[in-house]
């Protein structure tokens, strides 16, 4: 009884990713990610295109997307439908995001209202991808206010990762401040808490037996490997450990200098460790993306309807 498939999974993932990327560069621009952050531009560049690609996939998934595309204009009609809200939010976000990216590229200052409008729309985009599912009462697994909250947390985390990855290859200037890792650590911790509450309550039957059945499909059923391996281990625990260690290290500068005698040998080890560390962070950022994608797939494929269509 799955009516939505991989295209929708990718669409939900990219929606969150683009929204998070914008918010990452927005935060960097505001100085919330440390001084002279290298993340000030990369997120702006990828945000709108990523969301636009997701939207294009959504259109392909529509039965009439290529057949009678003029009907798509009607998607703006039902102001009571969350999907209609999404069409407005995504369209505006793509437009504002492209303008902002262009101005950043040209080294021109964007008007403050535009930058802020983009940030608000980015947050709305991330929340919308979850809200679209949360309002469906006939799917107990989706029908929770935690769904948009979880999607926003994942959007911020994946957005920060994709921006860091892009900046790594794009930016020659700017620095990696410890604040960046600290913020990501906080995001991962928040997401773990939300995930624990969401799946805990769902499994405990807070949304009825069908919700519990969906949760057990994910936790111990046929999606358990994707859940524990890709989402929990790669997407949450690895970043928790890696960003956690980075944070510990950043908190105690000069510890090695105090405890160990300075010698040529240790200096070389430290440098090698440092570059290994940065590769580890890159790999971790990739793992965050894998985890975020796994989450969207789990949510779509573990959706069980409130009635299985059978007569008892």
């Amino acid at each position: 009884m799955h009516h939505w498939h991989w295209l929708i999974v990718i669409y939900l993932f990219l929606g969150g990713l683009g929204a998070g990327a914008y918010l990452t560069s927005f935060a960097a621009e505001k100085g919330w990610l440390g001084k002279n952050s290298r993340l000030k531009r990369a997120g702006y560049y990828i945000a709108a295109p990523v969301v636009a690609i997701g939207t294009a996939l959504l259109v392909l998934d529509l039965g009439q997307g290529l057949y009678k595309p003029w009907l798509l204009f009607r998607l703006l009609f039902n102001l009571g439908s969350v999907m209609t809200w999404g069409v407005y939010i995504l369209s505006l976000f793509i437009i504002i995001g492209l303008i902002k990216a262009f101005l950043v590229f040209k080294n021109k200052t964007a008007p403050s209202w535009l930058t802020w409008a983009g940030a608000v729309l980015a947050l709305a985009t991330g929340a919308y991808t979850g809200l679209l599912l949360a309002v469906v009462k006939a799917i107990p697994f989706w029908n929770s206010f935690l769904m948009p909250v979880l999607f926003v947390a994942s959007a911020l985390s994946t957005g920060l990762s994709v921006t860091a990855l892009t900046a790594h290859f794009l930016e020659k200037e700017g620095s990696t401040d410890a604040t960046e890792g600290k913020v990501h650590l906080a995001l991962v911790i928040v997401e773990i808490v939300i995930v624990a509450i969401f799946f805990g309550m769902m499994a405990a039957g807070a949304k009825g037996p069908v919700g519990a059945e969906s949760a057990s499909l994910v936790i111990s059923g046929k999606y358990a490997i994707v859940f524990w391996g890709y989402f929990i281990a790669l997407g949450l625990l690895l970043p928790l450990v890696v960003f956690g260690l980075e944070y510990q290290r950043a908190k105690q500068p000069g510890r090695q200098v105090v405890t160990e005698p300075a010698s040529l040998g240790t200096e070389i080890t430290t440098t090698a460790e440092g570059s290994q560390q940065s590769y580890l962070v890159l790999v971790t950022d990739l793992a965050v993306l894998v985890g975020g994608f796994a989450l969207r797939a789990l949510v779509i494929f573990a959706a069980l309807p409130i009635w299985d269509g059978k007569l008892l």
Binding site: H3, W4, D61, L62, G63, Q64, G65, K68, L71, L72, R74, L75, S81, M83, V136, K137, A138, I139, A303, P305, I306, W307
Partner: peptide, 12 residues
């Protein structure tokens, strides 16, 4: 109808 299938999830 654009064929988005949202109603298929919504109808219990």
């Amino acid at each position: 109808c654009v064929g988005c299938k949202y109603c298929m999830y919504a109808c219990p």
